[in-house]
Amino acid sequence: MTAALRQDQSPVAEAAPAPLVTVENLTVSFKGGDGVIKAVNGVDFTLERGKVLTILGESGSGKSVTLKAMMRLHPPRKTSYTGRIAIGGREILSLSDRELGQVRGSVVSMIFQEPMLAFDPVYTIGQQIAETVVRHEGVSRQAADKRALELLEMVQIPSAARRLKAYPHEMSGGMRQRAMIALALSCRPDLLLADEPTTALDATVQMQVLILLRQLQREMGMAVIFVTHDMGVAAEIADEVAVMYAGRFIETGPVGDVIGRRLHPYTEGLLASTVHGAQRGQRLETIAGAPPNLAKLPSGCAFAPRCRYVEPRCRETEVPLFHPKPDHAARCLRIDR
């Protein structure tokens, strides 16, 4: 009670603890056959403990690349990073490989779209979870086995004791995704990275997994960065939303504001082209054209070639983030008039 009061009275004291995640001017580029692919072109954000940030974007927007960069999972020889990623005070981009191994799993961990590819097919689920616990927490094998059982129960896998001895291929898609969440949470990370974890699941199972993730996130006080292309999924899980296009955050804000009071024409188009039953019989509004080629990005605003409000000045300079409200921002010159 007193803590809450104090927070209300002095916003300075509230801002004092450093956010869990700070990303400043992050760029990621890959050397490929066709030259340099600029996948992420200057991303800035902060994320506090216990919050869910959803990165929303179409394929090729750089959302998964940003996520993998948080753990430096890109092939080291072909990838170059600039900028800064700090998670819980650790500078991810300057860690040695050994230090990185300590951070992965215990501070940051990740779940993927296809759990079948993330598990090793020749070990049981129980062995894989216990191995992670032993590796990071240095406990005995017996204690780790016990913890694996607790974890499977935590993610609500029925008859968990039996499932510990199951191989990944013996489980259904929804069950495997739950098991992967258990594996990712086995060392109580501060930050969970989720790369479209519900996209491959059936509708009824997708909702089960979303509700489970939300519940675990709240109970454990984790921060989550959740990547998706689905506005509906974002509405179900996000606190904050960042809309990504051509490697940049083009709109950020609380989920209700981004969906209800969007600022950027791309967000507007994305919402309009998301199919609802109510539009039956009507023509769907679409965004003309296709996302740009990341090897040769247009100058100025990357969305300009597809934008219905485009003006000559859009193509001239890079568009900064405008903040019409303190927590809601977008990169569009139309805001600046």
């Binding site: 909702m207 979303l210 509700i211 509405a235 179900e236 996000a238 209700g256």
Partner: peptide
Amino acid sequence: LASMPSMDPGNRTTAPALTGDP
């Protein structure tokens, strides 16, 4: 139908309509 995301952050789905996989 109950498993369709609500598109409304103020009115989120709180309980799954079905448990288990098909």
